[in-house]
């Protein structure tokens, strides 16, 4: 079991590094799908079956397909993305490493928790989670539909092509201006 954990952990970390370092966006998306599938494997190891299924359906099934559609429809799969300046890249790597070292140092003596409940391996089953979701958390569950409604309205409003130009139309960038900003 520990070997399975290390396998899934290695897959998720390596694919996460590929997400950050891949030149083409489509390769990043595929690596992120692999990362999410390995995280679903972690959920299965934790016996969180409901989360594993919802994770595969929502993340790899819906969100990543949405990313792929946007990349393909907007034809973004060009590897010509200008890199950030060297100092910025070094700062990003150093910052990430320092963040990890700080967080890891905070738990260097190990995480010791006293379980609040008697051990029960069945907490992640659909039956248990569904029961809690539809009794204790019924109101937040219903309210989340309002969140989705507002997201739908916002997305339609943002992505709609404007028929009338606004009073002060945004000037398209000149080449010199774009070069100046990119530098």
């Amino acid at each position: 079991m520990l070997a399975l954990f290390y396998l899934f952990a290695a897959i998720s970390v390596i694919s996460a590094l590929i997400v950050v370092s891949a030149r083409k966006p489509v390769n990043s998306v595929i690596a992120l799908v692999v990362c999410f599938l390995s995280i679903a494997g972690h959920y299965v190891l934790l016996n969180a079956q409901f989360l594993a299924m919802v994770h595969v359906i929502v993340y790899t099934g819906a969100i990543m397909v949405l990313f792929l559609f946007v990349i393909m429809l907007l034809n973004l799969n060009k590897a010509t993305e200008p890199m950030k300046s060297l100092g910025m890249r070094v700062a990003a790597i150093t910052g990430g490493a320092l963040l990890f070292i700080t967080l890891a140092a905070a738990i260097r003596q190990g995480v010791h928790i006293e379980s609040a409940n008697p051990f029960d391996a069945g907490v992640g089953l659909v039956r248990t989670v569904g029961h809690v979701l539809f009794t204790e958390f019924l109101l937040p569950f219903e309210v989340s539909s309002v969140l989705f409604l507002s997201a739908i309205v916002g997305v339609v409003m943002l992505a709609k092509k404007e028929k009338h130009q606004p009073e002060a139309p945004v000037e398209p960038l000149t080449e010199a201006e774009r070069a100046r900003r990119t530098a």
């Binding site: 928790i113 379980s115 409940n117 008697p118 907490v123 204790e136 958390f137």
Partner: peptide
């Protein structure tokens, strides 16, 4: 959640 045996975190 799994180590505490508490399903609320999974919700």
């Amino acid at each position: 959640s799994a180590h505490h045996s508490d399903p609320r975190a999974q919700v």
